[in-house]
Design a protein around this nucleic acid. Structure first.
Lengths: 345, 345
DNA sequence: ATTTAAAACCGAAACGTTTCGGATAAGGTA
DNA sequence: TACCTTATCCGAAACGTTTCGGTTTTAAAT
């Protein structure tokens, strides 16, 4: 292993100056710095992050703690999430640690273990619930953390999609097309984003002076199977919806399945809008007719997350920051006027 | 942060002895050890693994490097794998680092980066190909690693399912039931386990003196969709198989789908056997009629993997070890004699 | 009383880095 | 000449742990 000492011997420059040269300090002669750089390169020096970590208290390790018993709906996108986060973290020069604990109850214990004993600088929290015990735990101990999936204003670092706008835009698009019986297939009801999206949809209604019961919100897992089942159930009811809002692309898939099953064609018999997280596994291109969506790439969110994280773990506890990703409305061929109403009401 | 020094001051025992007491050395009085333990407990001492790592060169970090562009069939089980491995690693007192790189080409660079600069003790390799450049790279540099998915005898640590037995047992089961037209839905053909399973099936044939073409092997991704499609295609052919071997539970699902689609009933029209990795997402219980499988829990494999890893990263480079998990044959109601042959030939 | 062996203990160095508090030399100013 | 700046350099301490090479204490053996 090549160390600073080796470079010092090689160049005749003192250990201190070698460190400072490589560290980019101003009180080192540019000529010296170049000699040091050259030697470092030639000898194949790699800074030992463990030693650095011991001295500075910063190792560059960032961890995510998840229980092994995640529910099925979580698993479906969890891998994409983990990969995306890990990649974004690496790009910021940090290292990503995935720590799996047996159950939800062990999560906070793992925080202690990893932070105080394991050289972990900070944590990433996702899929927040309300209230979430992890947040208060970390806050009390002043352990740095960044949250994804928290769009209510809060006193900690977070990045999230602007879910209010998502609900508002999707509902608004259908209302403006003339729909007055809408089914909103939303996420699980204890998730913050679900209620925020509902609130956005409500705002779309009140802004237009339309009755609240125009949109019926159904909460549940965001899977293809549920999309199909729920859509079939409601489309077969006495007063079937003329349009559906799907919370993500998997639900949208299920709705397409249901439409095919019931012989309904999109958009003439049923309009559909959805939110698109731009997941690799569920591309928007796969839909025929093309789907009208609010779009916001999750991978951009991961990138912001990593940026926030590198700020959050800075030594002098820094200003808390938020990032709210703004969704983009992408038109598609999945929306038409409701069939019954010839543009009249 | 509570350190050994604090405990030393608190108890009046020297720093050295505190370290040795907690480290379980024999040359410390049991009474002293107890006093030290009590103080450590009371003060909330947690050993600093970074400092320990600096001194011993062992940090307890174990990494898995994966490219972000994994193919779809890989993704399906990848999350289960990652979670299982991470959990097993944690249980062995090690820490699991998931490092995602942009492409396959960057993998070896990440090895260097993490091993020489990042305080990573060793690596986990999965989904080996033949030959795999990662293996030779790590071997040349004497960087510790453990492989999952390598059942050919080799000069490095590995754990894997005994895929030869899997192929042999599944094929044998169908042959003994009298089937003589068998379709084997195997994995991708450049994966080692696929060819090993094929070899096992061939052995089952030769042992019984049956012609090689009795079993037709089809290679491809191990997904439900492919299971359905391939099964439909072959069942509709001129000489449809009377039995199918599915490489995993997802393929088996697809075959059930195909049977339902074609109005065939299992086992009277079609027999089916499969291999069951005991994945949470694809439980064996979900099949009706119950499926006859070779079973070997992947989570047990992860546990062995973690054990091997802790040996592999030991300071005095240790004896190379292998673990071959033996599959268990579990009977089910999915196999019967072929309908045409009234037990005669 | 003296020697010996075993048990229990401890100081100091080391791992590779950062950083504090000066030190040195050159050049400019009074 | 003496003094001050500025640029450049460096020794030594520190982070928390392990471990080498001893020393002291105790008890048993002669």
């Amino acid at each position: 292993m090549v160390t600073l000492k080796d470079i010092s011997k090689e160049t005749g420059v003192s250990l201190t100056q070698v460190s400072r040269a490589l560290g980019g300090f101003s009180d080192v002669n540019e000529q010296t710095r170049e000699r040091v750089r050259e030697a470092a390169q030639r000898l194949g020096y790699r800074p030992n992050s463990i030693a650095k970590g011991l001295k500075t208290g910063q190792t560059g390790f960032v961890a995510m703690v998840i229980p092994s018993d995640i529910d099925a709906s979580g698993r479906e996108i969890m891998f994409d999430m983990v990969v995306g986060i890990s990649q974004a973290i690496s790009r910021h020069g940090l290292k990503f640690l995935l720590h799996v604990v047996d159950s939800n109850a062990d999560v906070t214990g793992a925080f202690d273990e990893l932070y105080y004993g394991g050289g972990i600088d900070g944590f990433i929290l996702t899929e927040l619930e309300e209230p979430d015990p992890r947040v208060s735990y970390l806050k009390e101990r002043k352990i740095p953390f960044v949250v994804h999936g928290q769009d209510a204003v809060a006193e900690h670092f977070f990045v999230d999609l602007d879910n209010f706008r998502v609900g508002e835009a999707l509902a608004g698009r259908l209302l403006d097309a003339g729909h007055r019986r809408i089914l909103f297939l939303n996420g699980n009801d204890h998730r913050i984003y679900s209620s925020t999206r509902t609130a956005g949809a409500r705002r779309a209604l009140t802004d237009r002076g339309i009755a609240p019961e125009t949109i019926h919100v159904s909460y549940g897992p965001m899977t293809r199977a549920r999309g199909r089942e729920a859509a079939v159930e409601w489309l077969r009811s006495d007063e079937p919806p003329t349009a559906i809002i799907a919370g993500n692309m998997m639900l949208a898939r299920g709705v397409y399945d249901a439409a095919a099953e019931l012989g309904l064609s999109i958009p003439s018999d049923l309009s559909l809008v959805a939110h698109d997280d731009v997941l690799i596994q569920y591309p928007a291109e796969g839909f025929d007719p093309s789907l009208c969506v609010t779009r916001s790439s999750l991978s951009e969110a991961w990138s912001s997350l990593a940026t926030l994280m590198s700020r959050a773990i800075a030594p002098e506890s820094p200003e808390i920051e938020h990032v709210l990703m703004r969704p983009e409305l992408v038109e598609g061929a999945s929306v038409a006027e409701p069939s019954g109403s010839a543009s009249a009401r």
